[in-house]
């Protein structure tokens, strides 16, 4: 009886897997179809007349290498910035005692929930006054405003025995050396997985870059993809799917390599 019940739950879960994954399968398969085939045999998973023409058309219409480089550069800036600022702040919260610590931590962490529209106008004005429109730095700087890193690094630091840090501290080793030579090596798996999460999120970021990047040569992949979609119909779906397929390669590779670490870090973000 219980066995039957268990397997009927599996059917439900497998249906969910299909619903979640079929769009991805269709995306990849349609990117190798001609426009005609994508219309007439849209549910055919293996294309009838497989073709690379969408990819080559795409290569003629946009500067793919430049798009990938812009996206990569911006995501790297954001990721490194968040890791460095997050690690430093987490170290201070964990190992230093100072007045108002509780309040400062509370303010830092609360900012995670502030919707972007609340700060969007002043941030836009600051970035445009600083002459950073159309630049990766202009996209990256306001995005560093994210205390998730502090929260996650603090949780990771819980795993380091505090007696170890105290012992080296008493030996008179300066704290930047403790951070660099002891904390960072121990936290390596956490840093990699948290960095991977930051990188993927920033790679996919759309809203803030659309405000800052107006010049086509500064576009990132999501902005370029947006140009291929319009609500009025007439969208060339196979082309859009080819660009989407190119766009997912990097996040998917990162996920395949660090999957276990990434899921662990996501899990720990919900625990106190």
């Amino acid at each position: 009886m219980n066995k039957v019940k268990g397997s009927s739950w599996h059917i439900l879960l497998i249906i969910i897997c299909l619903v979640l994954l079929l769009p991805v399968v269709f995306m990849v398969s349609n990117s190798f179809k001609t426009l005609q085939d994508s219309y007439h045999s849209m549910l055919q998973i293996i294309p009838l007349h497989p073709t690379f023409s969408n990819y080559s058309t795409l290569g003629k219409q946009v500067d793919l290498l430049r798009l990938i480089w812009n996206t990569f550069f911006m995501a790297t800036l954001v990721t490194l910035g968040k890791i460095v600022t997050g690690l430093l702040a987490a170290y201070a919260f964990k190992y230093f005692t100072f007045k108002g610590k509780k309040w400062l931590y509370f303010i830092f962490v609360s900012t995670i929930f502030v919707p972007f529209t609340v700060v969007m106008i002043p941030n836009y004005l600051v970035i445009s006054k600083a002459n950073l429109l159309n630049s990766a730095l202009g996209v990256a700087l306001p995005q560093l405003c994210d205390a998730t890193g502090i929260m996650l690094f603090l949780k990771a630091m819980d795993k380091i025995p505090s007696s170890l840090i105290e012992a080296v501290h008493i030996d008179g080793i300066p704290s930047y050396k403790i951070l660099k030579d002891i904390v960072v090596p121990i936290l390596r798996p956490s840093i990699i997985s948290i960095g991977a999460i930051f990188f993927i999120n920033s790679w996919n970021e759309y809203v803030w870059p659309t405000l800052i990047l107006k010049d086509k040569s500064s576009f990132t992949l999501p902005l370029a993809l947006q140009n291929y979609i319009s609500s009025e119909g007439g969208t060339n779906f196979p082309l859009a799917m080819a660009l989407s397929t190119i766009m997912i390669i990097v996040p998917l590779l990162i996920y395949l390599i660090f999957q276990r670490y990434i899921l662990n870090s996501i899990s720990s973000s919900g625990l106190k």
């Binding site: 993927i200 996919n204 759309y206 779906f237």
Partner: peptide
């Protein structure tokens, strides 16, 4: 792992 732009398009 996907951008919401891809999700919206799909």
């Amino acid at each position: 792992l996907f951008s919401l732009v891809v999700g919206a398009m799909l």
